[in-house]
Amino acid sequence: MTLIETILAAVGGTVAMAVFGIVAGLFFLGVDRKFAALMQARIGPPLRQPFIDAAKLMRKENIVPENAIPWIFNGAPILALASAITILLYLPVGSIMPVLGGAGDLILVMYLLTIPALAMVVGGFASGSPYATVGAQREMVILIAYELPLAIAIIAIAWRLSMAGIADPFSLTTIAANPVWGVVGPVGAVGLLILLGILAWVTPAELSRIPFDAQEAETELAGGLLVEYSGKNFALFYLAQAVKTIVMAALAVALFLPWNLSSFVAMAPAVAVAADFVFFLAKVLLVVFFSISLIRVSMARFRINQIVSIYWVWLGLAGFVGLALVMIDAILAGV
């Protein structure tokens, strides 16, 4: 593909992924709220409630506080949404391979994940509010905290694929096409289960959800870094949150649950794409339930220093154990 063709595909892909990310993301936020309500024996809001919330926010006053730096305050939500959309272009969706699969790998995705969070930090500091400043400070700390276990999980998978003689182990196209479970033996499978658990615990922090939402903490910081945001600025952060939900779920699916229905059942190509897409959404539903809804309903918020201990000490250690098991597995397999 020439550069022009790549750029044209990228533009078309960006528009398509923006629509998909926002619509599917808002839908899954609704699903998460429904799950949480059912677990708390409530009826809960309808699935379309996040769409209603976003539409209502767009019609509300967009207050810019007198202490804020207006262009940064208004620019941060736009950057947060835009950067979240770009990550989707590097991730496979069902049997649809990533639009930019050849232009960026897993390490790039890991670093792109920090941009929406940094946009929130910048917006928080630009709010000129003490609550927002403390919230932004906490977001920075959380960002550093979950980097270590996330990096361990990613590197372990890519390293094992590389040891199995698979070329381009960091490419998401490669990872999606070669499920790592098929490469490892029983010891490696235990290691991978540990790493899967780690990714499930990184997801709520990436999405600022309970128990890792110390940066917003409604009961102590009154919303933290988002306290001064309202109207369309807040709506854009909400949409960015929706897109990030799909991004994190798609990442978990690509790394640990990459199978497609079309690999098991023979079907026409057009049907296969649709069936794999529906199957992908089912896997996203699974990830949303286990790593967002279930965790946030069953736990209370951690303090900021507890969050760092959990990620750097406990999940870091668990990650090294998982990595060691994957390495032992490679040695046992004689590679």
């Binding site: 750029i7 960026g104 897993l106 960091f170 490419s171």
Partner: peptide, 9 residues
């Protein structure tokens, strides 16, 4: 091992 294209991003 890794690769990325900054212009496309």
């Amino acid at each position: 091992f890794g690769f990325w294209n900054p212009i496309i991003w």
